[in-house]
């Protein structure tokens, strides 16, 4: 028994060596700090003898640090918002990123294609603060471009930052605008890597461009699509703080459609700065993601082992 596992180890020696550097990194930079998550269960108070002694001497409060996430009627709203936005981002993001990648590959002029690609990548560089300023310059009641436009058509100026019903569309649009270019790069690279002989064979069979895309390109991308989607599912309880805080300018009247778990936690802990509670919130978000990933990975594994995460 022991010799068998030793043999197995020896056979995999070289591959284990390849894994080693990053594995050590994971231990140091991910797994060790994870032990600090125990803060989520204490009322963290500083102790003059450093971090460990602080944890040790802090009061154990069980699950009390988690309570604020579930206590009020807001709990439902923030959970609903976080999940629904993420679902929209996952589905629309996937469709658009793949579509854009296919489109860029098919454009005949390489130079133009590259230019478009660079252009679509640009929004990724703008921070949410900057994006927030642009959205404001576009939507602001007095000077905003959009209200100037609508006033031409004789419509009343709208106070966009007081109208929650438009924000789901605005936020989804902005998210896609910012990230689709970035995400499409992965698909673009994947299309480039598809075995050329597959297309040749298809052409010999007389398949047109559309058929090639449907029967070769997309199936070849499923593996990447599945993996990226699985990873996104793992973060479904996390929201991009900047998008939901900077872009709506923290306008209270919009909370019903813009408050998400991350903004709720930020606002709630801004003054008290309780480490225990912020750690608890993160742990909760991670835990839900973990359960979802395990479940969906299990399902994916049943269908196609190659597309599973592990």
């Amino acid at each position: 028994m022991l010799s068998r596992s030793f043999k197995r180890f020896r056979q995999n020696k070289m591959l284990l060596l390849m894994v080693l550097p990053a594995a050590i990194w994971f231990v140091l930079f991910s797994y060790l700090p994870m032990a600090g998550s125990v803060i989520a269960f204490v009322e963290y108070r500083y102790d003059s003898n450093g971090f460990l002694s602080s944890i040790w001497n802090s009061k154990w409060v069980g699950l009390r640090n988690f309570e604020f996430l579930f206590q009020t009627s807001d709990a439902l709203i923030i959970t609903r918002n976080t999940v629904l936005y993420n679902l929209a981002f996952i589905v629309l993001g996937l469709v658009l990123a793949v579509a854009l990648a296919v489109l860029l590959v098919e454009i005949r002029n390489r130079r133009m294609s590259k230019t478009y690609q660079t252009a679509m990548f640009m929004p990724y560089f703008l921070s949410w603060v900057i994006v927030g300023y642009f959205v404001f310059s576009f939507l602001s009641t007095s000077k905003g471009l959009l209200n100037q436009l609508t006033s031409w058509f004789g419509l009343d100026a709208l106070n966009w930052y007081a109208e929650p019903k438009y924000w789901p569309f605005i936020l989804v649009f902005i998210y896609l605008w910012k990230f689709v270019g970035y995400n499409s790069i992965m698909y673009l690279a994947a299309i480039m890597g598809i075995d050329g002989s597959l297309y040749e064979a298809a052409m010999i069979d007389g398949a047109g461009k559309w058929k090639q895309i449907v029967h070769i390109t997309l199936p070849q991308l499923t593996s990447l699509m599945t993996i990226l989607t699985l990873l996104a599912v793992g973060r479904i309880f996390y929201a991009d703080f900047g998008l939901f805080y900077q872009v709506p300018r923290d306008s209270g009247l919009l909370y019903s459609t813009t408050n998400v778990i991350d903004t709720y936690v930020y606002r709630g802990l801004k003054t008290s700065g309780e480490f225990g509670m912020s750690t608890a919130a993160g742990l909760y978000q991670s835990f839900v993601g973990f359960v979802l990933v395990i479940t969906s990975n299990y399902i994916v594994r049943k269908i196609n082992k190659d597309n599973a995460l592990f």
Binding site: E43, R64, E67, F68, Q71, T72, D74, A162, D250, S251, G252, L253, Y255, N259, Y264, V265, R267, G268, L269, K270, T271, S272, E274, M277
Partner: peptide, 20 residues
């Protein structure tokens, strides 16, 4: 420290109504 949960909750309510 005995009302941290309530404090977090009212901070959010404050954000919702205060400035407006």
């Amino acid at each position: 420290s005995s009302v941290t949960n309530e404090l977090a909750a009212i901070q959010n309510v404050k954000g919702e109504f205060w400035a407006a």
